[in-house]
């Protein structure tokens, strides 16, 4: 936990659901974390966790979608030094029970994104998506 209080702040942005948006997601996160004066090492970890969650939306929630105009929204909020990152999308409904990473000692390509998210964040929660959204993922971290 950091000793410095971070100012309350909320920002959100919509991105097209495709792999080329992931760089834009990272840039957005880095800009917000810069405003929040989050230290570099933690910033790198948070950007990775958020980018992995966005990648999961592209890879899994929209696996069978051909609509190039679909959007996902990323909202970053900081209140009382608690960071909350919310993701909204209209892809295939996620079954939280099926979201799991591979065994970390079973070395093979894939299955690490969810592990990274869980390692970095304090909590990972799938909430009911309110219209027009279908999936609503919330990551939290005490700063």
């Amino acid at each position: 936990m950091s000793e410095t209080a971070h100012q309350d702040h909320t920002e959100k942005k919509a991105f097209l659901v495709n792999s080329s948006s992931l760089k834009e997601v990272r840039t957005f996160c880095r800009d917000v974390f810069e405003k929040l004066h989050i230290q570099q090492d933690l910033k790198d970890e948070l950007v990775l966790a958020i980018a992995e969650a966005a990648q999961n939306i592209v890879k899994h929630a929209f696996k069978n979608s051909a609509d190039a105009n679909e959007l996902m929204v990323v909202q970053i909020s900081c209140e009382n030094d608690k960071l909350q990152i919310a993701f909204y999308d209209r892809g295939t409904p996620v079954d939280p029970k099926k979201v799991k990473h591979r065994q970390i000692d079973n070395v093979k390509p894939g299955g690490l994104g969810t592990f990274f998210i869980q390692e970095i964040m304090d909590a990972v929660e799938f909430k009911d998506g309110k219209k027009p959204w279908i999936n609503h993922l919330v990551l939290t971290k005490q700063l």
């Binding site: 992931l22 990775l48 980018a51 992995e52 990648q55 070395v107 390509p109 690490l112």
Partner: peptide, 13 residues
């Protein structure tokens, strides 16, 4: 300067 799980998968593969 940045590598995500997809990049790590390339290293493993």
């Amino acid at each position: 300067q940045y590598m995500d799980s997809s990049g790590i998968s390339v290293l493993i593969e």
